[in-house]
Design a protein around this nucleic acid. Structure first.
Length: 428
RNA sequence: GGAGGGAUGGCAGAGCGGACGAUUGCGACGGUCUUGAAAACCGUUGAGGGGCAACCCUCCGGGGGUUCGAAUCCCCCUCCCUCCGCCA
């Protein structure tokens, strides 16, 4: 959520920044007005409160000194003020809630260096690595859903029978490959990122902190009976790890990683890109996340996550490109996002396998995570950064398609072999 | 699921209707002393909001109530702990 003081002091700047997203900015004018009213009523209420406090004190003194009559008179005076105060207090509460509700629905301001744009087409490809369209043979032009069936390593037909459309099931070497990918990624990031195994069901508050609620409730699975949400990404519990806390600047940046299932209803995208592993309701992901002291450190952390994710793709022998999301394609909470897209030759698609974002203090303000500056100043809201390392189904797909040999078997990239008992081939 | 006990500042832990934003200890920070450090001693040290400022208001898990006045009394909720039951 944005800082209300920023909206108050520089509404034009906020409107201009939101306009870069193509966002309707009328909520800002509304907020400025609401906030003004709220502050006026609040100070009026506070004055009355101060009066009640002062008079009450006198009541006590009068009683102690035995001045009964005076005490009774003061009591009546205080009671009258108290009643007016109560009415104003209700009004303040209502305005507070309105301000917060409005604030929660306003997206983050894009970073100054995020490219402007009106849609996906305006995203900027920063670099393409290892891609040569001429280099792929016919044997690599087989989509993973066919390879999966052919080798018996993917069984979405039965997954569908068990859970419905857009669920998947890995089998045998396919399941092992998936686990190897997860483990590789955890192992190589363990030097700097603390491994966490968080809960995958979370409270409403937790979903609000990352910005997944209140606006995007249709995208998430909700367990009505217990009022819990299935996480769409480990970003949700990891971001809230430090909720409500004041950290020491010397401990920052703090870095965490988690391997979890992720659950997405994919409302509105039914039937789109649903073949094979392109899009499913449940998938595995390893997430890297950092708490940073301010913008400079935050941006450095974003670079670190990106570099780490890229190196995994490189080591897996996959072609990929880095895409700088334009302002209109940016997620609600993000200020700057780089997507990593791996090339899958079989389905001839660039698959988004990672999304590395800097959220400035937007999420941390919602989660109320702060740090105490080393110079002793007042607590500051931290910055958050996160990125996938990686989203595994799509990586699995790109890998299987890329490394398919003419005989239909799959070459296991060297880095994965230790995790597969030294095995060099799948499907032999 | 049943019974009981809790939730107070960075942490520990008092307070149980008015002088309490809160005793105290630890920690942290500043100073004295010291070649330096430690120890000792002195001092400072919660968060949020409003105001140019003096200063004012709010916050003792959350919400409601009683009262002129609530950290303190009452009700509801959440969470934690102990015991019992059940269960992976």
């Amino acid at each position: 959520m944005l800082d209300i003081r920023l909206i108050r002091n520089e509404p034009e700047a906020v409107v201009a920044a939101l306009a870069r997203r193509g966002e309707d900015t009328s909520a800002i004018d509304e907020l400025v007005e609401l906030d003004g009213r709220r502050r006026a009523v609040t100070s009026e209420r506070d004055e009355l409160r101060a009066e009640v406090n002062a008079v009450s004190k006198q009541v006590g003194e009068a009683f102690r000194d035995g001045r009964r009559e005076e005490a009774e008179a003061l009591k009546a005076k205080s009671k009258a003020a108290g009643e007016r105060e109560k009415a104003l207090d209700a009004e303040v509460a209502e305005l507070d809630e309105k301000v917060r509700d409005t604030l929660l629905r306003i997206p983050n301001l894009p970073s100054a260096d995020a490219p402007d744009g009106a849609g996906e087409a305006d995203n900027v490809v920063l670099r393409t690595v290892g891609y040569d369209p001429e280099a792929y043979g016919e044997h690599q032009r087989v989509p993973h859903w066919d390879i999966g069936v052919e080798l018996g390593i993917l069984d979405n037909e039965r997954a569908t029978r068990i859970s419905g459309a857009m669920f998947s099931m890995y089998r045998g070497a396919g399941a092992r490959l998936l686990r190897a990918l997860v483990q590789l990624s955890l192992d190589r990031n363990g030097d700097a990122y603390e491994e966490i195994r968080p809960p995958t069901l979370v409270r409403t508050d937790t979903m609000i902190s990352t910005g997944h609620l209140p606006k995007f409730s249709d995208d998430a699975y909700h367990m009505e009976r217990d009022d819990l949400w299935a996480i769409p990404t480990a970003e949700v519990p990891l971001t809230s790890l430090g909720a409500g806390e004041i950290l020491d600047e010397s401990d920052l940046p703090m870095r965490f990683m988690a391997y979890t299932s992720c659950f997405r209803r994919e409302a509105g995208s039914a039937g789109r890109d649903t073949r094979g592993l392109l899009r499913s309701h449940e998938f595995d992901k390893v997430e890297l996340l950092a708490y940073a002291a301010g913008e400079e450190q935050g941006k450095a952390c974003q670079e670190d996550v990106l570099a780490r994710s890229e190196s995994i793709l490189t080591d897996l022998g996959l072609a990929y490109r880095v895409v700088d999301l334009c302002t209109s394609d940016l997620g609600n909470s993000a200020a700057r996002t780089w997507d990593l897209e791996a090339y899958a030759p079989g389905c001839d698609l660039w698959l988004e396998v990672s999304s590395v974002s800097w959220f400035s203090d937007y999420q941390a303000r919602r989660a109320n995570i702060r740090y105490r500056p080393a110079d002793g100043g007042p607590p500051q809201v931290i910055h958050t950064v996160n990125g996938s390392a990686m989203g595994w189904p799509r990586t699995w797909a790109a890998l299987v398609e890329t490394h398919r040999r003419p005989d239909g078997t799959i070459t296991v990239p060297e880095v994965l072999r230790p995790y597969l008992g030294g095995g060099e081939t799948i499907g032999a």
